[in-house]
Design a protein around this nucleic acid. Structure first.
Length: 335
DNA sequence: AAGCCGGGGGT
DNA sequence: ACCCCAGGCTT
């Protein structure tokens, strides 16, 4: 008898699943950490952060006792720092309550930083709840299976849940969810998917032109000019904690938008002039930053190695630390 | 529903 | 240069 779609995928997953650190243990805290780290982040990038994070904060209790700055110290460079802030809040909430992590998706989703995907992933993988976890991979796999150019979120969620329900408890829901995601990550990739190597090829209505499903969404990218001031003294640099959503909680050098950015920075610190160290480009989500980096001598007592900094600030400080590093005249202007 | 949030790697 | 990644929060 021909295998069902579910049988075909599970057989494939048994053979081809990657060995990933968070698949070694069933500790709910570790599953949660992995899922948060994997939000908008590739597996390969998340792995070293996962290891370092667990070394430093082995349990939810250890995380709750840490300061936010300690948490960001480990998270720096990984991006989307709200994830770290929320995970820290989550740990403090749950520990303060004196309860273990909620065992259901709805309970989990009430926690900070846990949305529909993460809640379903943790509930299914760590607690065995039969709920479909729909991420970008699953969305793409199902869009191709059904030849949906514009899959609607409810449509995808319902389809994913139907596939899981058809298993009728014969398979651990977490295994099924991971199998679907694994297929999307390694075979049913966004571009140049490996259709001949796909266990679901006989079930797929989109294999003829897989890259048509789902249709890509146009993404505008805005260009922004800013000025950074590296204020350097004999004892160190002037760094300040950033507020708000943008790199919030991390430290950085004073930054101002053009036009008039340099004048505002000079006025703020009572300076007459500053030396142009160079320019650099930095890309954020949907934004391209063109940064003019100036240096002036004055008060500064911070050691950048002891503060959590974003990549942007590390690049800026590198211009002051490594003179003539070749980045003195990078591409400009914003075109 | 749309806008916002980092950084990186594959193509 | 472009795409998008085991998304979630705010408006």
């Amino acid at each position: 008898m021909a295998p069902t779609l579910q049988e075909a995928l599970l057989a494939w997953y048994t053979q081809h699943q990657r060995r990933l650190p968070w698949r070694e243990a069933a500790d709910p805290y570790r599953v949660l950490l992995a899922e948060v780290l994997l939000q908008q982040t590739r597996v390969a990038q998340a792995i070293p952060y996962y290891q370092r994070f667990l070394e430093r904060f082995p349990t939810l209790e250890a995380l709750a006792q840490a300061s936010l700055e300690e948490v960001l110290e480990v998270w720096q460079g990984c991006g989307y720092y709200a994830r770290a802030r929320h995970l820290h809040q989550l740990a403090r909430q749950v520990v303060a309550r004196g309860q273990p992590l909620p065992h259901t998706a709805s309970g989990l989703q009430a926690l900070p930083g846990v949305g529909p995907y993460t809640a379903a992933a943790v509930a299914s993988i760590a607690f065995g709840q039969a709920i479909a976890a729909v991420d970008g991979n699953v969305r793409r796999v199902l869009a191709r299976l059904q030849a949906w150019e514009h899959p609607r979120p409810k449509q995808v969620q319902a389809q994913a849940q139907a596939l899981l329900d058809a298993l009728k408890g014969q398979v651990h829901p977490g295994i099924w969810n991971q199998a679907l995601m694994e297929l999307g990550a390694t075979v049913c990739t966004p571009r140049k998917p490996n259709c001949p190597g796909c266990p679901l090829v006989t079930f797929c209505r989109g294999q003829g032109q897989p890259e048509r499903y789902p249709a890509a969404r146009p993404r505008p990218q805005r260009s922004l000019e800013v000025v950074a001031l590296v204020l350097q003294g004999p004892l160190g640099f002037h760094l300040e904690p950033r507020q708000g959503r943008w790199l919030g909680g991390l430290w950085g050098v004073p930054l101002e938008e053009e036009p008039g950015g340099l004048a505002r920075l000079l006025a703020r610190f009572g300076l007459q002039k500053a030396e142009l160290l160079g320019t650099l480009r930095h890309d954020l989500t949907h934004r391209r930053l063109w940064v003019r980096v100036y240096r002036a001598w004055g008060e500064g007592r911070e050691n950048p190695a002891e503060r959590p900094l974003s990549r942007l600030d590390r690049k800026i400080l590198a211009l002051a630390t490594a003179p003539a590093a070749g980045a003195a005249r990078p591409p400009w202007p914003p075109s």
